[in-house]
Design a protein around this nucleic acid. Structure first.
Length: 224
DNA sequence: TTCCGGCGTC
DNA sequence: GACGCTGGAA
């Protein structure tokens, strides 16, 4: 079956889950943030951290008038105190500064310049920056730069593995390619699907005591 | 495998 | 007081 053949038929389990989540939870309208740069900052600050704490930190940066690449790089010594609430703040300050030096140095801090390059090239560059791993890189590519990459995270692994669709210890890139090959090649669907998986993971497919009986995906669970 | 970390929720 | 949070590095 060609990839295109999947587009209008819900044959794959992945697409069934997507449609079910979208139907029950509705569009999530990610990423919360007014500009690509705000989205990038959020992607770094929310690493292993709940969004509430990350958004408090972004607000601090915004109030300080530093939510711009060049200004924030210039005032990088203020970053640790500004982002304290996001947790891991010493590490994340280094990560943020490393990204800023790359982004301002190579692209003058302009989205319009970096998005001209192809996805793989940008991804390769992002992965060389300390503090930006595959999930953060793909979140930036998809939500800040509107590139067609599926974001794999802990919720993705947990939900799909509990549904018997993957092995939870699959390497990131392998899992990403597997999921992408079973979905329509659509940036919009990748965008919405990841957001829906996060929502489902937080509210139903919790680490401990998952709420399968009330979960929208409960009826799609494999027979025990 | 362990460390990084503030902040809600229970 | 313990747990978990839209990970990544060493």
């Amino acid at each position: 079956m060609t990839p295109q053949a999947n587009t209008n038929s819900s044959n794959t389990a992945f697409l069934k889950i997507y449609k079910k989540l979208y139907k029950t939870l509705g569009p999530q309208r990610w990423w919360p943030g007014d500009t690509p740069f705000e989205i990038i900052v959020g992607a770094i600050l929310t690493q292993n951290t709940n969004w509430h704490n990350a958004s408090l930190a972004i607000e601090k940066i915004k109030v300080a008038g530093l939510l711009h690449p060049k200004k924030l790089l210039m005032e990088h010594r203020r970053i640790p105190r500004l982002i304290k609430t996001s947790g891991f703040y010493r590490m994340k300050s280094k990560y943020l500064r490393a990204f800023l030096k790359y982004y301002v140095g190579k692209y003058d801090g302009r989205t319009s310049r970096i998005v001209k390059k192809n996805t793989r090239a940008i991804r390769h560059e992002l992965l060389k920056i300390p503090g930006i791993g595959p999930e953060t890189a793909d979140s930036i590519l998809l939500y800040a730069f509107d590139k067609r990459v599926f974001v794999v995270d802990g919720y993705t692994r947990r939900i799909f593995s509990r549904h018997g669709m993957i092995k939870s210890d699959m390497p990131y890139d392998t899992l990403q390619k597997f999921i992408e090959s079973n979905l329509p090649a659509s940036t919009r669907i990748y965008n919405e699907f990841h957001a829906l998986l996060v929502r489902a993971g937080k509210e139903y497919c919790r680490k401990n005591e998952p709420l399968c009986t009330t979960c929208p995906l409960g009826e799609l669970l494999p027979r025990a």
